[in-house]
Structure formats: C-alpha cells, structure tokens
C-alpha cells in the first residue's frame, strides 16, 4: 500500500515560490494500477519523483509498503555510455547482486520481451524513440520492482507503438504482480490501463475514480480536462 498524506511541493525559482501542489492525500492499494493525468506543468513528474524518493517534499509524508521501486522516466534516462544490453546488466549486477552469467541470461530474456533482441549491442542514441521507451521499460522491470512508476510511457509515439507499449505494460503486470503508477495524458491508455484515474489540476487532486466514473464525473476540472474545454 502507498499512503500519501498532506503532500506539498514548491520550487524556489527566481520567478515563483508558490506551491506547485499542496495537501495531496491519497492511498493506493497493493497491485492496483492508478493513473495520474493533468495538463503540462502541473507537477505530475514531480509527484512521481517524490514518491520514488528522488525529490524531497516540502510538506507531508509518504509511506510505501515496499522500497523496491522501478521507474520509467519521461526523458528515458537510459545510461548513454552503455549498450542496450549493458543498460539491463547494470541493474542486475549492481542492484540485484547477480553474477555476470545469470545477469546476461536475464538481460537477454528481457530484451526478447520488449522486442529489442537484435539491438542488444546498440547504444541508446542509436535507438529510435519507441525503442528507447521500450528499453526504459525493460530497465525498470528487470529488477522486478514491487512498485512501478511510469512517467508518460507512450508520449510522442505513434498509435501502433503506443499500443505495443500498453500491451507490454499489461502483460508484465500480470507476470510480475506489482503496484503501478502511471502518468499519462492519453485518455485512451488511461482508461485501458488504470483501475482508478486521478486528475492533477490547480495543485489539487480530483477524481480517483474507476475509468467510467472518471469519464462521467461532473467535477468541473475533470469535465474541462476530458473535453478540453476552456474556463
């Protein structure tokens, strides 16, 4: 279970030192898949990074049922000095303490799963955007995390690749059983993947409803977001 209580964050930029979001309180059950949506710049990435322990909140606290986290970054964050295969080997040998031989087998298996077997020896900058995303997914999953954070996994991808990644996410979730948090602005993927959907707007969370409930909600922020209406 992930318990978030009264979470708040502000960046001390030169321009603003206002709260990005404030008093966020929610709970995510084990093995649940929860989607966070919200306009650009509302702090979705920041929220995920705080949950992942990469940023400190300025307010509130978070309790995780398990510290074993994996994250797919919005910027992919692949290790660009390592080949695709080595990107998977590093977590296995460093984080999971596997031997080189075991790690090699495991890495091969995961490359196969994400369809990058033929690109094992290529460096991240030699891969296409979609391939990088898939490698990012593989790197997050290779350590078998109990909590998985996806930051915009299908952004900027064509519908076919986007579907491939979504199918991959569903398949891997079935296989490895984990709590999944997804940030996306793709309504189709959100309703397909999420058990519940939240909307982050004006520094507050709305919704937290199952997909149908979210689409039919009469909360003004959600209506505005779903239909892309203006105030």
């Amino acid at each position: 279970m992930i318990q978030v209580q009264g979470l708040g964050k502000k960046f001390n930029n030169d321009k603003t030192s206002e709260w990005l979001f404030r008093d966020l309180t929610f709970e995510i059950k084990e093995n649940e898949t929860v989607v966070f949506m919200g306009a650009s710049g509302t702090g979705k990435t920041t929220l995920l990074k705080i949950i992942g322990g990469l940023l400190n909140p300025d307010q509130g606290k978070i309790e995780l049922h398990n510290e074993h986290l994996g994250m797919v970054f919005q910027k992919n964050a692949l290790f660009d000095f390592l080949t695709a295969e080595e990107n998977l080997l590093l977590p296995l040998t460093e984080c999971m303490q596997q031997t080189q031989i075991d790690a090699k087998k495991e890495a091969q298996a995961f490359l196969e799963v994400v369809g990058l077997k033929d690109s094992a020896k290529l460096f991240p900058n030699e891969l296409s955007g979609g391939m990088q995303k898939r490698l990012g997914v593989a790197r997050a999953l290779v350590i078998r995390p109990k909590i998985l954070l996806y930051d915009d996994p299908t952004a900027g991808l064509d519908p076919i690749t986007s579907k491939k990644i979504a199918d991959l996410m569903i398949k891997l979730k079935k296989q490895y059983q984990s709590t999944v948090l997804i940030v996306t602005n793709d309504l189709k993927r959100a309703t397909q993947l999420g058990d519940r959907i939240y909307l982050l707007a004006n520094g507050k969370l709305f919704g937290g409803l199952e997909p149908n409930g979210f689409l039919l909600s009469n909360e003004p922020h959600i209506i505005q977001f779903v239909f892309g209406l203006r105030k």
């Binding site: 322990g53 990469l54 994996g70 992919n76 964050a77 692949l78 290790f79 984080c95 790197r139 350590i143």
Partner: peptide, 9 residues
C-alpha cells in the same frame, strides 16, 4: 535524469 535512474537502482 540518469543520476536519478542510478539512485533509484
């Protein structure tokens, strides 16, 4: 974000 990725691992 590669440093973050390392930290997370």
């Amino acid at each position: 974000d590669q440093l973050d990725a390392l930290k997370l691992l």
